[in-house]
Amino acid sequence: MRSFLAAFFVMLYAPIVTLVAFSFNDSKRNIVWRGFTTKYYAKAAANESLIEAFANSLTIAAVNMVASVALGVAAAVLLWRFRFPFRHAADGMMSLPIVIPEICLGVALLVFFNQWWPRDLAWPLSLGNIIIAHITFTFPFVAVIVRGRLASVNRELEKAAMDLGASEWQAMRDVLLPQIRPSIIAGALIAFTLSLDDFVITYFTAGPNSITLPVKINSMVRFSVTPEVNAASTVLIVITVIAAVLAMRFQTARRA
């Protein structure tokens, strides 16, 4: 049993550990260990197009996070609060982007934006279509997470607040929001992570002037997997892992 578990973790993490380890390897090739160095991080940091891609990625992820949270929380609260015709259908439709194969969504978005999205926009507007694409597949995650939390919220709480004199907005702010805040933060971090490391959908929607970090890494790998790629990948891993751990913490946070 123990050895099985050990094998399981080796399978899971050996590639990642290797990738991170070789980002510190003092060699041009990822084959033999030649000693510890951080020079490839410096090299990556000096690579202007890599840094530009990284800045693009962070910008997209940040804007996407804000928009996804706004949309996702609104959708979750509306679906929880109101009964209306086709509510269950709307509920299902909303989570469709989660299960649709990414490649299909990527092609669909490519065709969609090709019709009317203007080229040669100034930064950061040039990232607009990628941001919109990311919102379509990340906001359902926010909605699903927030709805999970809402399911355990007592509907009488808001009514009690209104009974005590609060307006609908005050009741939402003072009573509902504190109840679902951990799930909102968790959803935001997940939206950020998903956007930051998305490749497939971004690959289809990115133009030549709007490259993101995963797309850039992909194009670098085409020539050769240098430790510089490892270094860039490691940075990406660290950011996403931190965000994911935080997200999980907020999601399982106990109610005060």
């Binding site: 709480l157 009974d163 005590l164 004199g165």
Partner: peptide
């Protein structure tokens, strides 16, 4: 309801879970 001089005790009591007893009572 927020404009009526009428108050209600709900079946679930609906005590705000993120506020302590004092803040619950002071809310209105």
């Amino acid at each position: 309801p927020n404009k009526r001089p009428v108050n209600m005790v709900f079946q679930s009591y609906a005590v705000f879970p993120h506020m302590n007893v004092r803040d619950n009572i002071a809310y209105g």
